[in-house]
Write a protein that binds this DNA or RNA. Structure first.
Lengths: 118, 118
DNA sequence: TCAATATATGAATATATGTTCATATATTCA
DNA sequence: TGAATATATGAACATATATTCATATATTGA
C-alpha cells in the first residue's frame, strides 16, 4: 500500500500501524473536527458560548458580559457563525445571536467534566 | 454591583445582561475549558488522538501513522500529557501512549457528530 | 564501555490568530 | 434628509504556536 511506503519512520509494530491506519477517519474529517474544536479553544469565544447557553443576546450585550468591545465580539461571532455554532436574527438595528444546536452545549459539558475531574 | 459598573459598553437589556453574568461559569473554568479544547484544535493532535482511540501506540508508530517526525510527535504528546488526555508507560527504550480516560472519545464523537451533520 | 536506537527538549523560524483602530453599512427616528 | 446607533469589516500589529533542527538523555546489547 502506498501510504505504508510513504512512511519514512521505522515503525516498531508494522501490523499495528497498518491496522490503525485503516481504521483512522479520513484526513478531511480529522481536519474538520480539529477546526471545530479550534473554535472552542479561545477564552473569549468560550465565554460567548457560555453566555448564549443562557439567553439569546445581541452583540452589545455580549460585549458587555465578556468585558470586550463590540468590534472584537463581532469578529468572534463571525468565527462562530462560520462554524455553524450560532444563528442570528435581525430586529431593526440589533442582531440577536443564539446557539444553533444542542451539540454546543453537549461539547461544552464534556469539556467541563474533564477539567473539573482533574 | 461592581461588574456592571465596569461594563463600558451600553447594554441593550441590562436585566438580561445581569442575569447572564450571574449564571456564567467563573473565568477560571471558562479559561480551563478553552485551554482543553485548544488541545483538540490541531490536526496533528487530533490525528494522534484518533490513532490512540484504536490502540496503545509508541512515539515511533504514531509518527509513522501521522506522517510526521518523532520529534514533532513528542512535542505534541507533551501537550496532550499536560492536558491529562494521554497516559504513558515505558518499556525499555519504547514509550507507549494511550488515552487517559473516556472523555476524549466522547468529546471527539460529539465534534464529529457536529461536523458530519453540517 | 561503546554504538545504536527511542524519545525528549531547547532554540529558532514561519505561520496563524486575536484585538485594535478606522471606517463602512444599515436602520431608526427626529 | 441627516444624526445617532448597532453591527460589520479590512488592515495592522502583537502574540501564540507548530514544526524543524540540533542536541541531550536513556536504554539495550555487543
Amino acid at each position: 500500500m502506498e501510504e505504508l511506503l510513504n512512511c519514512e519512520v521505522n515503525s516498531i509494530d508494522e501490523k499495528k500501524v497498518e491496522k490503525v491506519k485503516r481504521t483512522l477517519p479520513n484526513d478531511e474529517t480529522i481536519f474538520d473536527v480539529a477546526e471545530l474544536f479550534k473554535v472552542f479553544g479561545d477564552s473569549t469565544r468560550m465565554k460567548i458560548i457560555c453566555a448564549l447557553l443562557e439567553e439569546e443576546l445581541c452583540v452589545c450585550d455580549i460585549a458587555c458580559i465578556t468585558n470586550s468591545t463590540p468590534s472584537a465580539i463581532s469578529h468572534q461571532l463571525r468565527v462562530l457563525k462560520q462554524a455553524k455554532l450560532v444563528k442570528y436574527r435581525k430586529e431593526g438595528k440589533v442582531v440577536y445571536y443564539a446557539l444553533d444546536d444542542d451539540h454546543v452545549r453537549q461539547i461544552f459539558e464534556k469539556g467541563r467534566e474533564h477539567v473539573e475531574e482533574v
